[in-house]
Amino acid sequence: MSDSASRIPTVDLRPWLSGDPEARAHAARTVDAALRTAGFLLVTGHGVDPALRAAIRESARGFFHLPAEAKRAYAVKVGGRGWLGPGAEANSYAEGTAAPPDLKESLSFAADDPTGDEAVDAEWFTPNTWPRETPGLRDLVETYLRRMRSLSDRLLELLGAALGEEEDFFTRHTGHPTWGFNINWYPGRERVGEPAPGQFRIGPHTDFGTVTVLDRQAGRGGLQVFTEEGGWEDAPFDPAAFTVNIGDLMERWTGGRWQSGRHRVLPPPADAPAEELMSLVYFYECDPGTDVRGLDSHTYLRGQLDAITVEAGNE
């Protein structure tokens, strides 16, 4: 077993969901240990059809390969619903590090089920934008998002037990949560050119919310995770597993017991310049107005989203 695999264990959800007390206790102990170290897990037994994930990638690839002028009609800033084009985002700014923009494009979606509070809905629950050029994408993504919402709540129940609390310790705050979903496209060097010094597909950062559920592809220019023990290491990969990490709100919620998983995505490699990868990234959060140890959850989230937006002051 590699060092990174030992720090990022695989957790099969089926024994946890079975209700067997011994299996559930073992899963909780494994999760607690991993989140104290790397903030990452691999999760199997989740029941999400791989064919659905493949179909989303195929449909989204049709959008990303459109001419730039066609995609530009859907352009938004970070936190919006639409297309984040080249140069729109620099994740390293979230940890205060100046760096060139990330070498990716994204189709970005977010929570769109209104609460009835006009001010909250105007900021956090606006309608999603669905590209006309890929008419099949909406049904695929909405099906996937329902599975992600359910899976994220199951994960939060496991995290509640791992923390030694009631299983609803976190999910009592996800009755009407915000979430974000990015389809991240990482093209090869023929599109993005030679990476600048310090430029990544996604720069070093931690996520901002509670749990992130990532469906990724293996690649030379892929995901790396940072730990104090091992520094930067390639994240272990299992095509059947989701890669799950916790974000800043969860670290704060646990009083620092668990570590928000610091990570980056390497630039397109020189020895495989045409490598093209696509990730499906679901960022789960909590209900607007949730108090996380004295911090308003969504004031924090808005500040971090603004921080990684590439504008005149962030270049």
Rank of each mutant, 00 (worst) to 15 (best):
Q304V: 08
L301D: 00
V76P: 01
S4L: 10
M148N: 08
F200Y: 15
E167C: 05
P100E: 01
D234A: 14
F40A: 05
N314M: 03
A122I: 11
P177R: 12
F170M: 02
T206R: 15
P127H: 10
S2N: 14
S59C: 11
D296N: 12
T171C: 04
P86E: 03
H205M: 06
V211W: 07
M278R: 08
F40D: 02
S150Q: 14
P50I: 10
T309G: 00
L266R: 13
L301G: 03
G62K: 15
A240M: 07
E123A: 13
D113Q: 15
A161C: 07
D20Q: 11
H263V: 00
H173D: 00
A161D: 12
P21I: 10
T178Y: 11
T44G: 06
R262K: 15
Q304L: 05
G294Y: 08
E190Y: 07
L156E: 02
L214T: 09
V78K: 11
A27V: 05
G175D: 06
T37C: 13
T299M: 09
K104S: 10
A60V: 12
F226T: 07
A34E: 00
P195N: 05
T178Q: 13
G219Y: 10
L84M: 12
R7D: 12
H65W: 13
P177L: 04
T97R: 15
G303P: 03
P67A: 10
A312F: 00
F125T: 09
A270S: 10
T227E: 01
G261K: 11
D238C: 09
G164S: 02
G96P: 02
A34Q: 05
D291P: 03
A23M: 05
D113K: 15
A241L: 09
I246E: 00
R36E: 06
L214F: 07
V120D: 00
D113H: 15
P236C: 08
I183Y: 04
N314W: 01
T243S: 12
D271R: 10
V43W: 13
R302F: 03
W253G: 00
H263I: 05
E118V: 13
R147N: 14
V211S: 03
I202G: 02
A34P: 04
E157F: 09
V310T: 05
T37I: 15
S260Q: 07
P67H: 11
P9L: 04
R220F: 03
T206K: 15
E251M: 12
L41C: 08
L280F: 07
R36Q: 14
G19Q: 08
F208S: 07
M278E: 01
L249M: 11
F169T: 11
L295G: 01
A111I: 10
K71V: 07
Y300Q: 06
L301W: 07
W124C: 02
S106D: 10
R138F: 03
S4D: 08
H263E: 03
T210Q: 12
P204G: 01
V281F: 08
T206Y: 13
W83Y: 15
R172W: 04
F283R: 12
P239Y: 07
